[in-house]
C-alpha cells in the first residue's frame, strides 16, 4: 500500500482529481502546490489518503462559503502544511532514526 495506490487506485483517485478540478481556480492552485510539497516531504500519513481527501473537503466548504483560499488558510501556506503534518513522521525521519539506531548499536 503506497501513494501509488491512491494514484493508481484509479477510480478513487480520478474521483479525487475531479473534486479538485471542481474547486475555484485559486483553490486549485493552492491544492496542487500543497500536494507537490507533501510528496517531497513525504509524511507517513499521506499513504492512508485521508489527509488529501480531508483537505479537499475543507476547501469545498471554504469555497461554498465564498471565501478566497488564502483567506481560509492564511498567506503562509507552508506553515499551514507543516501544521497539517505536525504529528506525522516523514520517510526522511524514518531513515534518520534507522541510521541513528544502527550507529548507536555499532558504538556499543
Amino acid at each position: 500500500m503506497g501513494i501509488q495506490d491512491i494514484i493508481e487506485g484509479k477510480r478513487q483517485w480520478r474521483a479525487h482529481v475531479a473534486r479538485v478540478k471542481a474547486l475555484p481556480p485559486d483553490y486549485q492552485i493552492v491544492y496542487q502546490e500543497i500536494q507537490r510539497y507533501l510528496f517531497k516531504v513525504g509524511p507517513v500519513d499521506l499513504v492512508d489518503g485521508t489527509l488529501l481527501s480531508g483537505l479537499v473537503e475543507f476547501f469545498e466548504e471554504g469555497a461554498a462559503a465564498g471565501k478566497g483560499v488564502l483567506q481560509l488558510i492564511g498567506t503562509d501556506v507552508a506553515a499551514f502544511c507543516d501544521d497539517l503534518i505536525k504529528d506525522s513522521r516523514t520517510y526522511a525521519d524514518v531513515y534518520q532514526e534507522s541510521v541513528e539506531r544502527n550507529s548507536g548499536a555499532a558504538e556499543k
Binding site: 501509488q4 517531497k40 513525504g42
Partner: peptide
C-alpha cells in the same frame, strides 16, 4: 519504496 513512490508522484503531477 514509499520514498520512490512519492518522488514518482511528484514527477507525474508536475
Amino acid at each position: 519504496m514509499p520514498i520512490l513512490d512519492g518522488a514518482l508522484g511528484l514527477l507525474e503531477e508536475s
